[in-house]
Design a protein around this nucleic acid. Structure first.
Lengths: 348, 348
DNA sequence: AAACCCAACTTGATCGCTAGAATAAGAGTA
DNA sequence: TACTCTTATTCTAGCGATCAAGTTGGGTTT
């Protein structure tokens, strides 16, 4: 059967406490065991193939060594997909060296009332959903463990630290790059799934704002279908675009392919910009200019901050005022952007 | 303070047991509570904002609703990176509808002896490391919960179900495709990190075997550096290659870029094949022929099987003989492969 | 020599919850 | 009436570990 700490204690002829101290270094405060006896206990434990029950330990000690990462979607169709990998990498890089485990939660743990994250099971929560429903806000507020928000602007929820990439800065950079090149008719290209996501909306809005500030007309939004035909457009004018800002690199790749097929030259006739600046940008023809979001760094820092919150809470320190970090985005200029075309091309 | 089940019981004027039954539907076997009282308990619990402690529940009931996924690497530099996303997607798709949580473990949980997975914390283990050290084999054998292996050939560890993609079939298909096209000088292209991975070794070996079976000379192995220059080569001959099999699509993309730069025509002068058949293959020029591994499906089925193991163990059923699934790989033929060139080109 | 200290342990009480047996009260039956 | 059978509800033990508060016994201090 299962070997418990008590079994080891009996076999070694000592109290359970002694075993606990020797094997886990954690029994009360001033409990000590002589090195001689300790060695004996270790030997007995190994011989019996004793395996500590993490659950029981956590229940008593109130530390689980696990962090919950809550995504909005997780599956084949998720529009978050490009991020997720980067986020997980960043988070993992922060957690694993500190011996934390990373748990993916489909949503918050079940609870018809819509609230509550599996209580007691996690030392902290990394909330990666950009949506905030009534239920989830309650759950976040009521969380009994430290929590940080990603993809949320500062102050989204009072007293909760936030980490987010600054879409505004991204779009300002895009415009700052395009304006001197003479672009005036700009469109935002997005797929049908992402268009309804918070991130999609935010970027479209940010682009509008940036264009407006630069005195450019409201950018059109093009929704591309699976086969890359234009699904629908919201337009206020009918002059052809000279620059397309795409929601993702993957989408930009599709646009480049369409252009080639239609005989539209990039950047000769039209400029194309992607989002994420992934390795893929170096492999397209022409090489893809793309917005560079520091997602991985952001995730790393969010997770690191979460760890420090957990530790300072454990040590009884006063929680410092919540951090709110906004990460500037860069624009990696490659070969898919150039001066606005003077040639009148068929409207894309 | 924390509201416990006991608090709710007292406030509602009933026994803790009654509360447990009403809120979690799980108290012994034949315990019932009248609907009237049940409603009352639910109301009181909501009012007190009671949140059950999952940990305590799990400790008692011996069910955690969590699955551990153990990867070999998890970070920026991991050669497993292309898989991981796919694996996680497949696993998530199997677990989440069943209310399981997915935990990523850096390696097995700490233990100087090299063995032991956080005991009690998980209902099952999905082992995704293709390497089997003495320590890990012991840990797997000694696991007190169901476990399945991915990337492990059938029978790797006696009595443990395995799920793996069949590199042999992949490479046989590659050869079957190339042979009629007249290719004889074939090379396997790989990066310095992957070359030492089990997967890298396995594929190189599988290619060798397939070539041998077809009566072709031993394929050369080319290791590409970061800048895509050839790092080293193991060659037995000095005639130029006519076909390059790459370890990943990403690498194949780099090779295509190099070819373009050097003025080598694909597939005119040389044929190139990738691995994974990702979306990216449709975006390269020419479109990339690539091996199609059913990783996501494999992960989904492995996870589903694990769940069924857990459930049948809980219900006290006899464990059926261990399943061992091998997944055939396909070859998605696109435009980067063609007849072997007759022209003598500078050796790549 | 009485008082005191400290290392080296042990004891008992939980952490929050739930399985299984026990109990109480009403209903059916011979 | 005595007897079993339901149905509702509580009681008693822990799950496996850790914490806080003892308990030893030898060595020091004054």
């Amino acid at each position: 059967m299962k070997v418990t700490l008590k079994d080891v204690a009996e076999a070694a002829g000592v109290s359970p406490m002694a075993v606990s101290v020797v094997l886990h270094g954690t029994g009360g405060k001033k409990v000590t065991v002589s090195e001689e006896k300790a060695e004996h206990i270790r030997r007995v434990a190994a011989q019996l193939r004793y395996r500590p029950n993490t659950l029981a330990r956590s229940l008593r000690s109130k530390q689980t060594g696990a962090i919950a990462v809550v995504f909005q979607h997780f599956g084949r169709l998720s529009p978050e997909r490009p991020y997720r990998t980067q986020i997980l990498n960043g988070v993992a890089e922060a957690l694993f060296p500190n011996e934390y485990t990373l748990s993916l939660c489909p949503r918050m743990m079940r609870d018809e009332n819509g609230a509550s994250i599996g209580d007691g099971r996690f030392d902290g929560i990394l909330w990666c959903r950009p949506d905030f429903t009534e239920g989830s806000v309650d759950a976040i507020r009521g969380a009994s463990v430290p929590i940080v928000l990603m993809h949320a602007p500062p102050g989204s929820i009072l007293g909760v630290p936030t980490f987010c990439a600054d879409n505004e800065s991204a779009m300002r950079r895009v415009i700052a790059h395009l304006l001197p090149l003479g672009h005036e008719r700009i469109a935002f290209v997005i797929d049908p799934i992402s268009v309804s996501s918070v991130e999609g909306q935010a970027r479209a809005l940010a682009l509008s704002a940036a264009a407006d500030r630069a005195g450019l007309p409201e950018p059109e939004v093009l929704i591309l279908a699976e086969d890359h035909s234009i699904l629908s457009r919201y337009s206020k004018n009918d002059r052809p675009h000279s620059a397309l800002i795409c929601f993702s690199d993957e989408l930009a790749g599709a646009v480049l392919a369409s252009c080639e097929q239609l005989g539209v030259k990039v950047p000769g006739h039209i400029s194309v910009i992607g989002f994420d600046s992934s390795w893929f940008c170096e492999r397209t023809n022409p090489r893809l200019t793309s917005v560079n979001q520091p997602v991985e760094r952001m995730a790393f820092e969010a997770a690191s901050h979460l760890i420090s919150l957990i530790q300072s809470q454990r040590d009884g320190n006063v929680p410092n005022t919540p951090v709110s970090s906004v990460y500037d985005c860069g624009l990696d200029v490659r070969d898919s952007t150039g001066p606005a075309s003077q040639t009148q091309i068929p409207r894309f």
